[in-house]
Design a protein around this nucleic acid. Structure first.
Length: 527
RNA sequence: GGCUCCGUAGCCAAGUGGCUAAGGCAGCGGAUUGCAAAUCCGCCAUCGUCGGUUCGACUCCGACCGGAGCCUCCA
């Protein structure tokens, strides 16, 4: 209700109406920002103790797309992704590898950043590290203690869940039902669900001085402290994987809202988790009550990819698959749904990519312009420019944008792009643009491609040409292919189809496809 | 046991209280081609099961069956 007035003011500033699914309300809500025209967005980033795997890439790709769409639509977006570089897991891993925690964190952060870059996640504005914000964190904790929401206990500091009346509101949990972490810390806490804000250092552990003695931050506090420092007490969108809803985000809310007496984030967005399709058996998680029956062999079970499943490092995945196919796969399912991941789905995405790239190549033959060289556009510019591309394209663009405005429905957006490709191909077919080159029609084609570039840019797809797959001899291969094609063309001219077909078949065996078009013969590699 | 969510064609995957239930892959028929490839045209689902609400449900409610996630510092 209260959103309505603000929605109007948001629209008054010329911004489109956007719906966002909010985990807090379990419903879609209109986007109304704290500051009109600006969006502050925080995504929980990785704990950098191991090389990242595909699961770590889901959130960044999705929120990169969210940011692209909001920025394209006219908001000024500030996107923060934190790096958690102090944590029990880092301590354990670094001592196992005989290196300092800082060195481990640096290595794994570099790995993470390279993987993001490969996927085209380029729009992160700030990546604060927990260890750069120890002071912020300590001040935050002191604030909570001063408000009697937290208490020191033998060098630790805990958040007092009993003092927080709406604790559990994000996940609909009651404090009583909470078991909390057991073990040695249990007797230092007032109630089981209390969680650590500050942990006392044991001998030899990395430690920072604090009012409670040497120690390190607990898990959730760095996000509360750093989001406050960069985005303020109340910002717009907080994101993360569904597995973080509890306890991580629940606890962030508890800390931040107890200290600030205002909402931490207006919208809580959670992405679905990667599932390894075809994985056998259940992996990880709490065992279900009874002993499991024998797994049916044919049964396609899926299991969340996590540290416990031993998902392969993203780097080795990249050795086998194009990053763009991975991005395409991540965006072709709605972001709140689980994504089935595996070799087969990836291969299918790669095939989907080809339909677009064939059109780009076709356009280049006709117009001489590279798709990748086309400039990106804002939404407002596109509103005007699209008319030149014709009615069908105008309708598709509007369908695309409606889908994106409705909780970032990238699946529908991509579906309209497939329709789009068909419309353009048909246009080229019908006007025989490859044979003749009538100026007016070429201009329309160019307008179509401009708008396609506008839309794919929103998804972060096809922003750069794919890396050449071949080695150093690529130029030589090109020359040889020209020669082979010329010789084959002569055979065809003299109706020696046996020779022409032999050449094509033998090349096919080498995964090279020949296409005899009206304007000549082209070749491409088959994936 | 508590809390979330899902079950749509051979496979993947959107979506809707009533109009032709998106799109992709695979398949089939056609145009085009020397034959192919590419491209275009066409075909290919009554929405887990059983009840209920409703003039009308695949869409709302309930039960059941099946699957996933969280309740353990996993993105």
């Amino acid at each position: 209700m209260s959103h309505n007035e603000a929605t109007i003011s948001e629209q008054a500033s010329g911004l489109p109406a956007i719906q966002v699914y909010n985990t807090l309300s379990r419903d879609k809500e209109s986007l109304v920002t704290v500051k009109p025209g600006e969006v502050g967005m925080y995504l929980c980033g990785p704990t950098v103790y191991k090389p990242s795997h595909i699961g770590h890439m889901v959130g960044p790709v999705i929120f990169d797309t969210v940011k692209r769409h909001l920025a394209y639509s006219g908001w000024k977006v500030t996107w923060v992704v934190n790096i958690t570089d102090v944590d029990d897991k880092l301590i354990a891993e670094s001592s196992r590898r005989g290196m300092t925690m800082a060195a481990l964190a640096e290595e794994m952060t570099a790995d993470y950043l390279e993987n993001l870059a490969a996927l085209g996640v380029t729009s992160i504005d700030e990546m604060p590290k927990a260890t750069d914000h120890i002071g912020t964190i300590i001040t935050f904790i002191e604030g909570l203690i001063a408000k009697d929401r937290a208490y020191a206990s033998d060098g630790d500091v805990y958040f007092d869940v009993q003092k927080d009346p709406d604790y559990g509101k994000l996940t609909n949990r009651s404090v009583d039902a909470m078991q909390g972490e057991g073990g040695s810390t249990a007797d230092r806490k007032r109630s089981a669900a209390d969680f650590a804000l500050w942990k006392k250092a044991k001998d030899g552990e990395p430690a920072w001085e604090s009012p409670w003695g040497p120690g390190r931050p607990g898990w959730h506090i760095e996000c509360s402290a750093m989001s406050e420092a960069i985005l303020g007490d109340h910002f717009d969108i907080h994101g993360g994987g569904l597995d973080l809803v509890f306890p991580h985000h629940e606890n962030e809310i508890a800390q931040s809202e107890s200290l600030h007496d205002c909402p931490m984030a207006t919208y809580w967005m959670h992405n679905g988790l990667m599932q390894a399709s075809g994985a056998s058996g259940k992996v990880g998680g709490r065992p279900r009550g009874e002993a499991g029956e024998a797994e049916s062999i044919e049964a396609q079970t899926a299991a969340k990819i996590s540290k416990s499943t031993g998902a392969e490092p993203f780097k080795t995945l990249l050795a086998r698959h194009e990053p763009e196919a991975i991005r395409m796969l991540l965006l072709s399912t709605h972001y709140r749904s689980p994504i089935h991941f595996g070799e087969e789905p990836l291969a299918e995405s790669a095939r989907a990519l080809e339909a677009f790239r064939r059109l780009f190549a076709r356009n280049e033959r006709v117009c001489g312009t590279s798709f990748y060289a086309l400039p990106s556009r804002t939404r407002q510019l596109g509103d005007v420019a699209v008319a030149a591309a014709g009615e069908e394209v105008t309708a598709l663009r509007s369908k695309f944008l409606t889908a994106m405005d409705d909780d970032f429905n990238t699946a529908i957006a991509i579906a309209t792009l497939f329709d789009y490709v068909r419309v353009v191909n048909k246009y080229i077919d019908q006007h025989q643009l490859e044979a003749n080159k009538p100026e007016a029609e070429l201009a329309t084609l160019a307008a179509m491609m401009d708008t396609l570039r506008e839309l794919t840019g929103v998804l972060g797809l096809f922003v750069a040409p794919p890396k050449a797959s071949g080695g150093a001899d690529e130029a030589l291969v090109g020359q040889l292919m020209e020669l082979v094609i010329e010789i084959r063309a002569n055979a065809r001219k003299s109706k020696d189809f046996a020779t022409a077909d032999l050449v094509r078949d033998r090349l096919g065996a080498m995964k090279i496809v020949l296409e005899d078009r009206a304007d000549g013969t082209g070749w491409s590699r088959k994936s």
